[in-house]
Design a protein around this nucleic acid. Structure first.
Lengths: 233, 233
DNA sequence: CAGATTAATATGTGCATGCATAAAAACATT
DNA sequence: AATGTTTTTATGCATGCACATATTAATCTG
C-alpha cells in the first residue's frame, strides 16, 4: 500500500523502526534502497537518508555503500548514559546538594595511577578526595588526581567548597577522555565515608581525561550502594 | 584569520570542537550563528548545521531556535555503551564462547518482577537461567523471565544451547526498552555459578523490554568480578 | 580461466533555496 | 505597568541536484 504521507524524516524513521520491530523487515535482511523508499514514502531521498542515517547511528541498521542497508542482525543497543555533574544530578531530583572535601594533598600517586596517566612514577600530583551528599546522605565519593604540569592553576585552589569537577570543567582544556564503569567492594575507609558496610557493592565510574598527549586528571567516583544508572533503549 | 578551507562537515565539527576544548569558546558562551560560521568557514550553512547538530547530539552544544547556540555549560558527557550480544562480545576478543543452561522452569516470578513487568502477581512465566563462559571461565550469569502471553513460542524452546537473548532477538517483536546498570553483592548461588567469593561486587545490567503495553522479558546479567564497560568520552 | 580492468550502483555528502517554527524583542493596548 | 500582539531572527528541515566514494558485478585480457 502506498502510505499516505511521510512528510518529515522523523515519521519516516518511526515507520522504518516500526517495520524493524514488528519483524516486517527481519534481522539481517536487506531493506529497499533509499531511492525506492523515497518513492514509497513520497518524499525526497535526502529525507529518507536522514532517517536511515539516524537509525544506523542508533545501531538499528547496518549501512554500506553500494552494498545497501540491512537490518542489524545484532541490534547493538547503544545505551547513552548522561554523565552529568553530580550537583545537577542531585538538584534535578529536588534534593539538597552538599559537598565536603575530605582530603587535599600533594603527593606521588600509586603506580597504577601514574602509569594510567602516562607520567613518571615519581611525579607529584594534587590529590583531592571529596564527598557529594544528597539531602545530607552520602551520595558519591570522589577521588581525584590532578596533573599539575598540565593544570598548574589547580595548585592555588583549595577545593574546599567547589568541587574539582566543576573547577576543571571551567578551567582545564582537554581533547579526549575515557570512561569505564565497574563494580567494586567498599574498602574500610570508603565504607566509613559512604556510611555503608565494608564490602558493600559500589558502582564505580572511572574517568581519565587528556589534553593531547598529556593526562589532565584521573577520577574515580564511588556511588553509595543501590545507585543505578538508567537509560531508554 | 579567515581559515583556509573547511570543505566538509567533519572538518567544521573538528574545528568547532577544538575551539570548545581549548576554551576559545568558553562553557556557557554563545557562539556565532550558523550563517556567520558558514561565511567564516567558506561553506554552506547546511554544512555548518550538520556539524553543529552532531555536536549538540553529543552534548557539546546547547541549541535553541532563535536563542542561538551556546557551548554546553555542563558538558553532559554522553557515554555511549554498546550492549552487544555476549557471544559476540567474547568472540571479538578472540576467546572461546560457551553457553550453559542452568535452569528452565515455568513458575510465578517474585513480586518485584511481576510488578516491574506490569503483570498480575500470579502470572506464570518462563524462567531461564544460564551461564555465559569465555575460555571456559564464567563470564556472565543471565537470569531471565519471559512473558509467555506475549511470546508464546518461547514455551517450545529448550534454550539448551541457544541463548534466550539470541532467540528473542530473532523472534520477539518489541517497541521499547529500559536498561539499568548497578552494582550488587554476589549471593550464595550466584557466587557459586560465577566461581567467585560470596559478597563479591558484581556489575549488573538489568533490561526490560516492551511490545507496546505488554512486557516481553526482564533479564538481569551479572558479570564476573572485574568486569568493566568502557567507552570514549 | 585467473587476474586485472571497467562499469554500474547504493550510500555519503555538499550546496542553494525556500519555508517552518520557536522564542526573543519590539511594539501596541488596556 | 501589566498584558497581549506583532515582528524579527536563528535554528530546523525538506527538496532537487551534483558529485564523491566504496563495492559489487560485469567485462576484458593474457
Amino acid at each position: 500500500m502506498n502510505s499516505p504521507a511521510f512528510r518529515d524524516w522523523q515519521s519516516v524513521q518511526d515507520e522504518v523502526l516500526r517495520r524493524i520491530r514488528t519483524r516486517m523487515w527481519e534481522p539481517g535482511a536487506m531493506i529497499p534502497n533509499e531511492a525506492d523508499l523515497a518513492v514509497e514514502f513520497g518524499c525526497a531521498r535526502s529525507t529518507v537518508n536522514r532517517a536511515l542515517r539516524s537509525l544506523a547511528e542508533a545501531g538499528w541498521l547496518d549501512r554500506r555503500r553500494k552494498a545497501g542497508t540491512r537490518v542489524a542482525a545484532q541490534p547493538i543497543a547503544k545505551a547513552t548514559l548522561s554523565i552529568a555533574v553530580i550537583r545537577h544530578e542531585i538538584e534535578e531530583r529536588g534534593q539538597k546538594y552538599s559537598y565536603q572535601r575530605v582530603a587535599r594533598t600533594l603527593s606521588v600517586p600509586p603506580l597504577d595511577v601514574s602509569a594510567a596517566m602516562r607520567m613518571p612514577a615519581e611525579t607529584v600530583m594534587l590529590y583531592i578526595r571529596a564527598l557529594h551528599l544528597a539531602d545530607d546522605m552520602p551520595y558519591a565519593l570522589e577521588s581525584r588526581w590532578i596533573n599539575l604540569q598540565v593544570v598548574p592553576g589547580a595548585q592555588d585552589e583549595p577545593f574546599q567548597n567547589l568541587s574539582a569537577n566543576e573547577w576543571l570543567l571551567r578551567h582545564a582544556p582537554y581533547s579526549d577522555g575515557e570512561i569505564a564503569f565497574s563494580a567494586v567492594n567498599a574498602g574500610e575507609d570508603e565504607a566509613e565515608l559512604l556510611a555503608c558496610p565494608e564490602g558493600a557493592a559500589l558502582f564505580a565510574v572511572d574517568r581519565l581525561t587528556w589534553d593531547g598527549d598529556a593526562s589532565v586528571t584521573k577520577v574515580r567516583l564511588l556511588f553509595a550502594p543501590g545507585h543505578q544508572m538508567r537509560t531508554k533503549l
